[in-house]
């Protein structure tokens, strides 16, 4: 009994020690947004990048605000996010060397099929939001300082509304949990098209408003300044950064579809 116990314990120790060395070497940590990860895009393009370069990309999917924080602390080798203002601030503070537009898709306004605020009749995104506020229809906001949340606040601003009241619910959650909550309480919600396309628990929710310049959602890749964080795998990260905007990378992004429809549009075709 005791001897068996010892062998078991020894095995566990070896297991514990080995855990640090699982799959090593040529990889980078990419801090990106939950919207891109959850759409399934990375599962499509990273294998292609790996096949041509031998570099693996490990995606840490968090809100855009947290992605910037991780990169500023030097914990990521590369960044792919969707908040132009935040990206420019990142560059201005000297954390990034270069920013490139990679791809875009759009935000959509989603709500209950009955559409009590008549959002689908609106001509602009701002008007759609005004209708929601006017009807005091429940609206689920990310409330997490993510790229989508920042976009939502910009649209409210352009509509001249400071949303408040019991109909406006700040959830402080990622896109998926916010959609889950919205589905549960028949609320309106601003979502990115990628997450929506991959979202399975729609219940009564449907797309009510789309196609407006204000809803454009541009993703940018940032090359991190190696002078700020010397340990960052600059060369590998640069290979990724260049590949994304190369012909091969753009083609890989364009060929990612869901239900027959592309979810992200590469910038070169813009």
């Amino acid at each position: 009994m005791i001897r068996h116990g010892r062998r078991f314990a020894l095995g566990l120790v070896l297991l514990a020690l080995s855990s640090g060395t699982v799959a090593a070497d040529r990889h980078i940590i990419l801090a990106s947004t939950t919207s891109t990860e959850q759409s399934g895009l990375f599962g499509h393009i990273i294998p292609r990048f790996r096949d041509s370069t031998g570099i693996d990309v490990r995606v840490v999917a968090v809100g855009t605000g947290q992605a910037f924080a991780i990169a500023r602390r030097g914990d990521a080798d590369a960044l792919l996010v969707h908040d132009r203002r935040g990206e420019e601030a990142f560059l201005a503070d000297g954390y990034g060397l270069e920013r490139r537009d990679v791809m875009y898709n759009d935000f959509i306004i989603i709500g209950p099929g009955e559409d009590p605020a008549k959002v689908s009749d609106a001509d602009t995104a701002a008007e759609a939001m005004r209708r929601i506020a006017g009807a005091q229809a429940p609206f689920a906001s990310r409330g997490d300082d993510s790229g989508t949340h920042r976009a939502e606040r910009r649209i409210w601003e352009s509509a001249g509304i400071t949303p408040s009241g019991s109909w406006y619910r700040e959830l402080g959650s990622g896109m998926g949990p916010t959609l889950n909550t919205a589905a549960g309480m028949d609320a309106y919600v601003l979502a990115d098209r990628g997450t929506w396309a991959g979202f399975g628990n729609r219940q009564n929710l449907t797309v009510l408003f789309e196609d407006d310049e204000a809803l454009s959602n541009v993703y940018g890749s940032l090359l991190i300044n190696p002078e700020r964080h010397p340990h960052v795998k600059h060369d590998l990260a640069e290979a990724w950064h260049r590949w994304l905007v190369s012909g091969a990378g753009q083609e890989a992004i364009a060929s990612f579809t869901r239900g027959g429809e592309p979810l992200f549009v590469p910038v070169v075709t813009r």
Binding site: G174, G176, N180, A183, F199, G200, N201
Partner: peptide, 9 residues
């Protein structure tokens, strides 16, 4: 947690 946020309950 991931599958929950993808709505694949």
């Amino acid at each position: 947690a991931l599958e929950t946020s993808r709505g694949d309950l």
